[in-house]
C-alpha cells in the first residue's frame, strides 16, 4: 500500500500572537462571565440528580400492593440476561400459597449487569424493574452481589401492572 503524505503548512505567529497578552485577556473574560451565570455544578452526594423516566438504573424486585413478592422464579430473566448477571434457584412455596412457586435464591451480580433492561422486558410477572438507582457501589466483590431480600427492599411496592394471582 502506498501512503500519500500531505504536508500541512503552519501559519506563522503574528506579532499579536507572540505578544501573548490578548489570548490571556480573552480567556479571563470567559472566566469572569461565568462567575455571574447560575451555577450548574452539583454538590454530589449532598445534591442528587433527578433522572428521567426512561433512565435505566439497577434492576430491583418489587412486591404488589398487598405486599406479595411478585417474582415466581420463572427464570426467564436469568435466561435472557446477556452477561449472566442473574442466578435463581426456584422453590415450592408453602402449602396453600396459590402462587406455588418462588425464588429460594435470587442473586443479581451488579459487577456483571450491563443495564440493558432485557430482564424487565422478559419478565411475565412484572416483578423486576430498572430502578432509578445509579449509585451502585461496594467495598468488595461480595457487596456487589445483591440477594433476594435486598432486591425486594430496594424495589418496594409497585401498585400498577400485572396482578393475575390476586383472584386465583
Amino acid at each position: 500500500m502506498t501512503v500519500t503524505v500531505k504536508p500541512v503548512r503552519r501559519r506563522k505567529a503574528t506579532f499579536l500572537d507572540r505578544l501573548y497578552l490578548p489570548a490571556i485577556l480573552k480567556g479571563l473574560s470567559i472566566t469572569f462571565k461565568r462567575m455571574f451565570r447560575p451555577k450548574i455544578t452539583m454538590q454530589f452526594p449532598e445534591e442528587r440528580w433527578t433522572v428521567r423516566d426512561q433512565y435505566r438504573g439497577m434492576p430491583v424486585l418489587v412486591s404488589d400492593d398487598e405486599g406479595r413478592p411478585k417474582c415466581v422464579a420463572c427464570s426467564l430473566c436469568e435466561f435472557v440476561c446477556p452477561p449472566k448477571a442473574i442466578f435463581i434457584v426456584p422453590e415450592e412455596l408453602e402449602v396453600g400459597n396459590k402462587v406455588e412457586r418462588g425464588p429460594a435464591v435470587f442473586d443479581l451480580n451488579m459487577l456483571r449487569c450491563i443495564y440493558c433492561a432485557l430482564c424487565e422486558e422478559a419478565c411475565p410477572e412484572e416483578a423486576i424493574f430498572m430502578s432509578k438507582n445509579y449509585m451502585v457501589w461496594g467495598a468488595n466483590r461480595s457487596d456487589m452481589l445483591f440477594h433476594k431480600e435486598k432486591l425486594y427492599e430496594l424495589g418496594g411496592i409497585r401498585t400498577e401492572g400485572v396482578k393475575k394471582w390476586k383472584d386465583k
Partner: peptide, 11 residues
C-alpha cells in the same frame, strides 16, 4: 387456560 406458564414445569 390459566396461562400460568411462568410457574409451570411443562413450559
Amino acid at each position: 387456560h390459566p396461562l400460568d406458564c411462568p410457574i409451570c414445569d411443562q413450559a
